[in-house]
């Protein structure tokens, strides 16, 4: 019982005790959203360019049905690209994370909201990942592995590198973390 009274689980960066439902969520880095928009735009522009090239090229005549397909692609591709951009923008706005003394939560989803909470005690190892574009943008992905299996790897994308390193340090320095590793 003494253990119970001394136990606290305060949210980091916030004074009051926080039940899961009322967590104060921090958004992901703004550059993450911009990067995703950039990648989306680049991919669709490239696709469109290829289609336009196919349409314009004077060397060989396209069969009638392929030509029809290409002409549809000419207006369909920008439309899908635009919709995807809008969706990603909104979806990225819905991605948040929150740190408490003993766990990390990540929430996402516009229509299907999903809040994953990873207790720090159960983290087996941590990875900080950066793709080439992420490195350019100064972003990093943080992955926390538990014994729950590969399907349940906890990941927060789009963190500023310094922020990600801070969180990693927080997990590593947590007095209960990685205790299972030593067994």
């Amino acid at each position: 019982m003494t253990e119970q009274s001394s136990f606290t689980n305060l949210q980091i960066n916030s004074e009051q005790l926080a039940p899961l439902a009322t967590l104060q969520l921090e958004p992901l880095a703004r550059s993450y959203r911009l990067l995703r928009q950039g990648v989306n735009a680049a991919v669709f522009t490239l696709l469109l360019l290829m289609v336009v090239l196919l349409w314009w090229q004077p060397w060989w005549a396209l069969p009638a049905n392929v030509l029809q397909l290409v002409e549809h692609a000419l207006w369909l591709l920008p439309l899908v690209g635009l919709l995807r951009a809008l969706f990603c923008w909104q979806a990225d706005k819905c991605k948040h994370f929150a740190l408490r003394e003993h766990d990390i939560s990540y929430s996402s989803g516009i229509f299907f909201r999903n809040i994953i909470t990873q207790p720090v005690v159960r983290v087996q190892h941590i990875e900080l990942k950066q793709g080439p574009l992420e490195r350019k943008a100064g972003l990093a992905r943080l992955q926390l592995f538990s014994a729950g299996g590969a399907l349940h790897t906890f990941e927060i994308p789009g963190l500023l590198l310094a922020q990600a390193q801070q969180i990693r340090q927080f997990v590593l320095q947590h007095k209960d973390a990685l205790q299972d590793e030593q067994q």
Binding site: L20, F111, F112, I116, T117, P119, R122, G148
Partner: peptide, 8 residues
């Protein structure tokens, strides 16, 4: 190991 809370 981990918990998830889902809501459509």
């Amino acid at each position: 190991q981990q918990v998830q809370f889902k809501q459509s």
